[in-house]
């Protein structure tokens, strides 16, 4: 169903890699006696380059739905999404081909990203070493452990050095060393100017984020994080009150 009230465009801002305004999403069913589920109700979010943004919320609050809308794989009912640059998406479920090996998966997705064979080789060497799963490169995806499958999932999102990285619980199944390596990698990417959104449940990680969005009742609540991991003392300029979404503008541009 086409919606004249929603639009998607390339971001014009130099610093903003993705901006979502007033996103509405309801899961409907064509069957009678089935319930509709309102997931997002005016969700608004902005991610700048070189910024690590955490998206938090209780189970079933719609975090993965929001992430899929930001990535562009899920349609939404209303609002605006503007992106710039290349996107790397690491979904919660790996979404890979079960009977391809790790090497073949790099090869296939490298082709999708229009990388040359030498670029694919370089990216593969970098990520296999960085995430420490070099010895599994000949193994089929279905035969990988949960943690190694997740490393490959993350690698596919990173291999083309995207400008915007969307990670949906990326470290599920990681051991401690890989978890540390993941954060080192993330901080390195931030220094290179990559905008990163991470869905996370780990409260102790709050200080790793620049901004945290709490998703509750379909709305996003923005909170700038200070050095100690708590809310910044004066967030007034950057705080967006999504409880009172702008109903006049931003729907269609």
């Amino acid at each position: 169903m086409s919606s004249p009230q929603r639009s998607t465009q390339s971001s014009q801002s130099g610093n903003t890699v993705v901006e979502a305004i007033n996103i509405q999403k309801t899961y409907d069913s064509w069957l009678p006696f089935s319930r509709s589920v309102d997931v997002l109700d005016g969700a608004t979010l902005e991610i700048g380059s070189g910024e690590i943004v955490g998206i938090m919320g209780e189970n079933g609050s719609g975090k993965s739905t929001l992430m899929q809308i930001l990535a562009g794989v899920l349609d939404y009912d209303d609002g605006t999404v503007a992106r710039s640059g290349r996107i790397g998406w690491c979904p919660q479920e790996p979404r890979l081909y079960d009977r391809l090996t790790v090497d073949e998966t790099f090869e296939l997705f490298g082709e999708a990203y229009e990388m040359s064979p030498s670029e694919v080789d370089a990216a593969r060497s970098w990520l296999l070493t960085e995430l420490d799963f070099e010895r599994f490169r000949d193994r089929q995806v279905r035969n990988l452990s949960g943690g190694n499958k997740q490393k490959l999932n993350l690698s596919v999102a990173l291999m083309h050095e995207p400008d915007l990285l969307l990670l949906d619980e990326p470290y599920t199944g990681f051991d401690w060393e890989t978890f540390q390596a993941f954060w080192n990698l993330t901080e390195d990417l931030r220094d290179r100017g990559v905008g990163i959104a991470i869905i996370s449940h780990i409260i102790n990680e709050r200080d790793r984020f620049d901004v945290i969005y709490e998703l509750h009742d379909g709305h996003l609540h923005r909170e700038v994080v200070d050095e100690e991991g708590g809310p910044a003392s004066t967030p007034t300029e950057e705080k967006i009150d999504c409880e009172q979404p702008d109903t006049t503008g931003g729907k269609s541009e």
Binding site: A71, V73, I87, P91, R95, Y97, F109, A112, V156, H160
Partner: peptide, 14 residues
Amino acid sequence: SSKAADDRLRLAGY
């Protein structure tokens, strides 16, 4: 069987 992975491949640039 390949719908989910095909979606990802499309997003990657196919």
